[in-house]
Amino acid sequence: MDKFLDRLNIYASRLVLQKEYLMPGHRACQGCAEVLALRLVAKVLGRNNIIASATGCMEIVSSPLPLTSWNVPWIHVAFENAAAVASGIEAGLKALMRKGGLPQQKINVMAMAGDGGTSDIGLQALSGAMERGHDFVYVCFDNEAYMNTGIQRSSSTPFGASTTTSPAGKVVPGQTTWKKNMPEIAAAHNIPYVATACPSYPFDLMEKVKKAADIEGPAYIHILSVCPTGWRLPPQLAIHAGRLAVETGIFPLYEVERGKYRLSVDLPELRPVEEYLKIQGRFRHLTPEMIDKIQQRVLEEYEKLKKKVEMTNEG
């Protein structure tokens, strides 16, 4: 058996580059899938990479002041302007290379923010940067609330989730609004590349980041990152929960390349959303009627997405 496996020694996990650009010793919680996503993204973008990071979990855990976890140039900027700073870096590099201050080379520029820094506070800067067409990669780490400051709701929090500012009680059952569809907003800017990813599918994620970096022009990647602390989930289930989010259709993995939609994980049959909701403490209070409501909505959205895939791939 062992000899046989030796000959078949081609596991994809072992082909991953061993060099780390985000060093260990960061202060993320146990089982944080967000820092896992960040690690994989940094791995793909490599040494020639400049990062502008908005405030958020990933900024806090990777840069406790006298120390830093980063092996690449990294700048912390305010919540609002991660995309604006990244576009400035990109324009500056372009000018330097044109005037001969820097040899011509490919330097990736990446902006990163959480869901609050993307869909609430940083939306206008992101929209502006995408409209101007800067060549950069914007990565949104969506953990569905402001986890860094203590689990406050954001516009990315899903319906029914209990957070500290949308607590579940007798009258109001948690968050009353639906999750903002941020990848669609990015796709509406007609930028060359938009994708959703999840660290539970690491090779899919890395492929998408590679594609986003290679494409000329702005690229947006929305990464669902499970937060065991904020989602009231045992830390070892972080990867499992991300997988369930995809398999139930709550967070479908797709990419939009020059207007063409493509599903990355095309499921013949979706799992019931209850499987995803029941393992999380933030959905513990949901009644069967509310779960039905969520199930209906998820199926509707998934149908809509499938229609878009069909429509854009015709002819």
Binding site: L5, R14, A28, V35
Partner: peptide, 20 residues
């Protein structure tokens, strides 16, 4: 020696040795 744990470790605490 599939390396699954290495890919999923959020703390970079798993090292792949020379023999896999």
């Amino acid at each position: 020696r599939c390396g699954t744990c290495y890919v999923y470790c959020p703390d970079m605490a798993i090292k792949i040795l020379k023999d896999g």
